[in-house]
Design a protein around this nucleic acid. Sequence first.
DNA 1: TTGTAGGCGTTATCAT
DNA 2: ATGATAACGCCTACAA
Lengths: 380, 380
Amino acid sequence: MARVGRAQKVGKSQLMEQERVKGDTYSGNGPDAGAGTALMRDVAERAGVAISTVSRALANPDRVSQKTRDRIIAAAAQLGYTPNAVARNLRKGSARLMMIVLPGPFFSGASQIIPGVLEGVAATLAAEGFNLMIANLDRSEAVERHILDLAYGGTIAGSMTLASYLPQQGARSLVGAGLPLVGILQDVSGQGVPSVVTNDRTAMRDATARLLALGHRSFLYIAAPPDNYHEHERFGGVQAAIAAAGLPPAAVQRIESGDSFQFGLQAGAATAESYLRIPPAQRPTAIIASSDDAAIAFMGYVTRAGVQVPGDVSVLGFDGATVGAHLAPPLSSLIQPARAMGNEAARLLLAQLSGAKIPSVVTLESTLAERGSTGPAPTR
Amino acid sequence: MARVGRAQKVGKSQLMEQERVKGDTYSGNGPDAGAGTALMRDVAERAGVAISTVSRALANPDRVSQKTRDRIIAAAAQLGYTPNAVARNLRKGSARLMMIVLPGPFFSGASQIIPGVLEGVAATLAAEGFNLMIANLDRSEAVERHILDLAYGGTIAGSMTLASYLPQQGARSLVGAGLPLVGILQDVSGQGVPSVVTNDRTAMRDATARLLALGHRSFLYIAAPPDNYHEHERFGGVQAAIAAAGLPPAAVQRIESGDSFQFGLQAGAATAESYLRIPPAQRPTAIIASSDDAAIAFMGYVTRAGVQVPGDVSVLGFDGATVGAHLAPPLSSLIQPARAMGNEAARLLLAQLSGAKIPSVVTLESTLAERGSTGPAPTR
DNA sequence: TTGTAGGCGTTATCAT
DNA sequence: ATGATAACGCCTACAA
């Protein structure tokens, strides 16, 4: 019953420039390196029972006599037996792997929202014995096809998406794959996908109302790109508060720059530059940023130019980046429950798997943390 | 030839506190919701050929006549056929899925090193048609077993680890699973695992030498936990530079706080507190932090206390967090090539898969970015 | 309680 | 060039 490891072809390691390589080399784990190649049939043989009995002993221990079960467990342990999950998945028609589709790179800026969501998702899934696979949706057709292959090819049991665009090709689509699906951060319930979101609009409205209560009457809003769902919601919240206070829409000036939501830092710096060109007496007294990155970069830029925060200008961020609390001054921000959203999304996914009815939208609250970058409007 | 979707049991969605749920509910994708359930046999039937011919037409197009191939492709397209990857994996004995083991939560702080590494890994793997699965190694035996099950169960084709501890249980171990394995950030080549690291020690030594050249003679080093590989290397580099300059070891004071590398922000703040208790004339003139988080928090804290950076004290970080460039002053730091390390690790993994010899250690350079938080030592 | 046998969907070997 | 057939490793009626 000879079994060998995976086949090995000859290949070549491509190395990058600007790197050093230690002299000696490593040959990889050759064929037969692993000891864990024992099969169920080996366990059966060793325990002197049929394969099916082994299968039962492992899956339904109570349907096998105590004695044989012990023998089987012992044999399995001795052989270091591990069930082949691929064969099991094929047989059972389902995998224990979830996919999460990200809209692009997930390591820009300091807000940590996406890592936080991932962390929450992974934790909840792990508790149920599910694994998490990540896929990046960078708008190439190849990637889109790949994602659909995964969805239709039995590899995954369900999927989450942080993107508002859902991949589709011809008759195939992520929505139509018959798999549990959940949107996170973006509300895609309009496309029939249950979603976990935060209350961007009302959170922003309330925070703006708070700034109004502090005496601010002139605002600068640092926008994310206009096609962004969050953008619409967040700016809408600002406008709502302004209107409710009886101020004209022009009380808030919306500044847009950059063409990706990831570029918050640049947007913040660019906005600061514009801000500094305004004669001091006419400057808005409060900055509302659509992200902490934008807020931090704005604050850094104007601080270096000698502007006092919050003495001359208040700055409010959105995200609740941990690092914000450690700046000078500490950044006031709307804290998104990133990890909790991840937890909840995973829960909804698992609930769908078990056929439960689930809400089409779950909203978790973002909460205002007034730390130090916001204060009373300056008197002029 | 009736086929049904996955089985559905009745379950219940557990909801969190502090959340609102939109009224209507979503029933999930029930059985038979997907159209993509066509099998190879269906394609064969429609094209009027044998299953094996379909398999060949899809895998080795040149071993099938032009005419039948076209018929098959057309049939597959019409049916929206997607090959079942699970069945293929079982048959071929290999999967196209890589695992990356993280030592714990990966969303703390602002340094973005781990997200950056993940991004690089995912990008390189995706280009080769491989997927990325993430696993968190939080030191529970259950998790460890789970990871080993994945490694031994045919689910994954290889693994990377950001942890220095490699899971093992009895006879099974990640190293012994016979799978390609690569360490990232941590040098685990001593355990026989090829590793991709950065030159912590020499980078830190050179950066310290630079501070010495700026006239600094008294240093405070904000440490990571002592069991951390980076910590040893980085502090070693500082000490080496101090010694090379002919200064006594006491020229650098090492401050340790917190018990996890993730808690850099807290460590920085705590260190700042200690720093402020030192009489101004006796304060070290340069702070060297083992992470940007620590550096940022230190800088924020002392700035709020009225200390000038870099006028009174220079601050140097390690990581190259993007946000650092946008602070006041911009943070000087050693920029880790996080994404490149991810790329390289994935490359090494794939190279092992094809049986190539690969280096046991690949070192990518961290580069010093002098931005604004470091400057000449104050004259007293 | 245990064993036998068939099949999950694909690939690969062997004939034809 | 194409078709029949036997695995891949496991689970699960069904039979004993």
